[in-house]
Measured scan of single mutants.
Amino acid sequence: NQASVVANQLIPINTALTLVMMRSEVVTPVGIPAKDIPRLVSMQVNRAVPLGTTLMPDMVKGYA
């Protein structure tokens, strides 16, 4: 199973992502692939993302 990107903490709306905010985990449904973590750094979330939430492409500005 492919690992997805999961929030390692509460990420407030419009926050630029950093490595410490994200972890990889095998979850259902599948979200953004963990291999894309380096690409996500500095991108902003367009909503508040609670701890443990799988990041989906529509949550990150400029990803999709």
Results as ranks from 00 to 15, higher is better:
N1A: 15
N1S: 15
N1F: 07
N1P: 15
N1H: 14
Q2T: 13
Q2E: 15
Q2R: 03
A3C: 15
A3P: 14
S4D: 01
S4T: 04
S4Y: 03
S4L: 01
S4I: 02
V5A: 10
V5W: 01
V5M: 02
V6Y: 02
V6N: 00
V6Q: 05
A7M: 07
N8M: 07
N8K: 10
N8G: 12
N8L: 05
N8C: 11
N8F: 07
Q9E: 13
Q9Y: 11
Q9W: 08
Q9F: 12
Q9D: 08
L10K: 07
L10G: 10
L10H: 07
L10M: 12
L10C: 13
L10E: 13
I11E: 00
I11A: 01
I11S: 01
I11C: 03
I11N: 00
P12L: 07
P12Q: 07
P12M: 13
P12H: 08
P12K: 08
P12W: 09
P12C: 14
I13K: 06
I13M: 11
I13F: 11
I13Q: 06
I13R: 07
I13N: 10
N14K: 04
N14F: 08
N14G: 12
N14S: 05
N14W: 07
T15R: 05
T15V: 10
T15Y: 07
T15C: 05
A16V: 12
A16Y: 06
A16S: 11
A16M: 09
A16E: 10
A16D: 14
L17Y: 00
L17C: 02
L17N: 00
L17P: 02
L17D: 02
L17A: 00
L17S: 00
T18M: 06
T18P: 00
T18N: 05
L19E: 08
L19R: 06
L19Q: 11
L19A: 12
V20R: 05
V20P: 09
V20E: 13
V20M: 10
M21R: 03
M21L: 06
M21W: 02
M21H: 11
M21I: 03
M21T: 03
M22Y: 01
M22E: 02
R23H: 07
R23K: 13
R23G: 12
S24A: 10
S24Q: 14
S24G: 10
S24F: 08
S24D: 15
S24V: 09
S24C: 13
S24L: 06
S24R: 04
E25W: 04
E25P: 00
E25D: 09
E25N: 05
E25F: 03
V26R: 03
V26T: 11
V26W: 06
V26D: 15
V26M: 12
V27L: 07
V27S: 08
V27I: 11
T28K: 04
T28E: 15
T28Y: 13
T28M: 07
T28G: 07
P29Q: 08
P29I: 07
P29D: 13
P29V: 10
P29N: 10
V30E: 15
V30D: 15
V30R: 03
V30C: 08
V30L: 11
V30H: 13
V30N: 13
V30Y: 11
G31A: 03
G31F: 02
I32A: 02
I32D: 01
I32T: 01
I32E: 01
I32W: 02
I32Q: 00
I32C: 08
I32K: 00
P33G: 05
P33V: 08
P33D: 15
P33T: 06
P33E: 14
P33W: 07
A34R: 03
A34V: 12
A34H: 04
A34K: 04
A34D: 15
A34C: 15
K35G: 14
K35R: 07
K35M: 15
K35P: 15
K35S: 15
K35E: 15
D36P: 00
D36I: 04
D36T: 04
D36A: 04
D36G: 03
I37K: 05
I37R: 05
I37F: 03
I37C: 13
P38Y: 08
P38T: 08
P38M: 05
P38H: 05
P38Q: 11
P38D: 10
P38N: 12
R39L: 15
L40Q: 00
L40T: 01
L40R: 00
L40P: 00
L40V: 06
V41I: 11
V41D: 04
V41F: 05
V41T: 07
S42V: 03
S42A: 14
M43S: 12
M43G: 04
M43Y: 05
M43H: 08
M43V: 04
Q44F: 09
Q44K: 13
Q44H: 07
Q44N: 05
Q44L: 09
V45D: 01
V45A: 07
V45W: 00
V45I: 09
V45K: 00
V45M: 07
N46A: 11
N46D: 14
N46R: 10
N46I: 14
N46M: 14
N46E: 14
R47L: 12
R47T: 10
R47E: 14
R47P: 02
R47I: 14
R47D: 12
A48P: 08
A48N: 12
A48H: 10
A48F: 09
A48T: 11
A48G: 06
A48K: 08
A48C: 13
A48R: 09
A48W: 05
V49K: 00
V49D: 02
V49M: 05
P50K: 09
P50N: 12
P50E: 09
P50D: 15
P50S: 12
P50M: 07
L51F: 07
L51C: 14
L51G: 13
L51A: 13
G52V: 02
G52E: 08
G52I: 02
G52A: 08
G52D: 15
G52H: 13
T53H: 15
T53Y: 12
T53Q: 06
T54Y: 02
T54F: 02
L55P: 01
L55F: 12
L55K: 00
L55R: 00
L55C: 02
M56V: 11
M56F: 09
M56Q: 14
M56L: 12
M56R: 07
P57Y: 12
P57H: 09
P57S: 14
D58S: 10
D58F: 06
D58P: 09
D58V: 07
M59P: 01
M59A: 08
M59I: 07
M59L: 07
M59Q: 06
V60E: 02
V60C: 03
V60H: 01
V60L: 09
K61F: 08
K61I: 14
K61Y: 08
K61W: 10
K61V: 11
K61P: 14
G62A: 12
G62H: 11
G62F: 08
G62T: 07
Y63F: 11
Y63E: 07
Y63S: 04
Y63L: 07
A64E: 14
A64K: 10
A64Q: 13
